[in-house]
Design a protein around this nucleic acid. Sequence first.
DNA 1: AAGACGGGGGC
DNA 2: GCCCCAGTCTT
Length: 348
Amino acid sequence: MSTNFKKSLIQWSNDHKRSLPWQNTKNPYFIWLREVILQQTRVEQGANYYKSFIEKYPNVENLATASLEDVYKSWEGLGYYSRAKNLHETAKIIHEQLNDIFPNQYEAILKLKGIGEYTAAAIASFAYDLPYATLDGNTYRVLSRYFGIEIPIDTTEGKKYFKQVANECLDTHQPAQYNQALIDLGATICKPKNPQCDHCPLSSNCVAYNNNNIEQLPIKSKKIIIQERFLNFLLIHINEHIFIQQRKEKDIWQHLFQFPLVETLENETISESFLSHYYSGNFQILEESEIYTQILTHRKIKAKFWEVKVSNFQAPKDWLLVPFEQIKKFSYPKIIRDYLSIRYNYIY
DNA sequence: AAGACGGGGGC
DNA sequence: GCCCCAGTCTT
């Protein structure tokens, strides 16, 4: 049964290669870059970032010697920005401590920042043909359906169980081809919604297919809760310059730049006296924007932009007064970029 | 063990 | 709206 699984899968993959920018590379640096970019990210979204990254940073030394801000800017729009930070840190370690040579053992790869079990297994198998099964959203889905596994995948028990199943199924003689095939099948045939079971090489032995409960698997036990946040961004222009600040909070958009921010509760609004109390200076509100909404996985952001004039003002230390033409050099959250493109015709 | 972390797309 | 995506880190 397991042999049949492998054979059908690999045979299918030989006839259904996707054409992607990283085809056939064995370069561990490229594979690492690709895998980090694709963490929780669709192939279609990540492909162009991958292309621009290998162009801007063709090897680990280029990435290591680039500034962190440069890497953030290159990452802008991709989300989960801690990936960019960890990528840069790890590049520096490989460059400065490992003589530009990527580790070639699973345990050593796993120790690197930003590399968890999935990415370590991916690099180990794709770059070095080591026998580690990649366990990602695709493989959870295929395995849970094929074997009819109803243990929730978002629990410790589930993860442990699926890891065991995944490694038992792994074709240890060709781990790279096998892992790639399983991922491709999950991405193109065994999709979350509307799976193409008609074209699936594994359907005849698929427990969920035969039980007619494909769409019920895999099972997740936790529900996503969405919280709202209300953000007021202050646009303070002074002589063709404008204030921005870099986020320091260890929360959403850490390290990214933004216009000076006042966060409020839902019913609260900001007023001139509110601002004058909040900061030292006399504020005059010139214009209040409509509400811009951005829905994220765990968060709903409602943002307002306030054109504000200020006098007798001592700016907080972490505010930067930058020439307005140069604001595009900094890395911003999407909601700010949206505003800039609408209000000021900046093309992002 | 549970939360936090983005943005894009399918339906 | 809700769910998912080539997951990882912190608490």
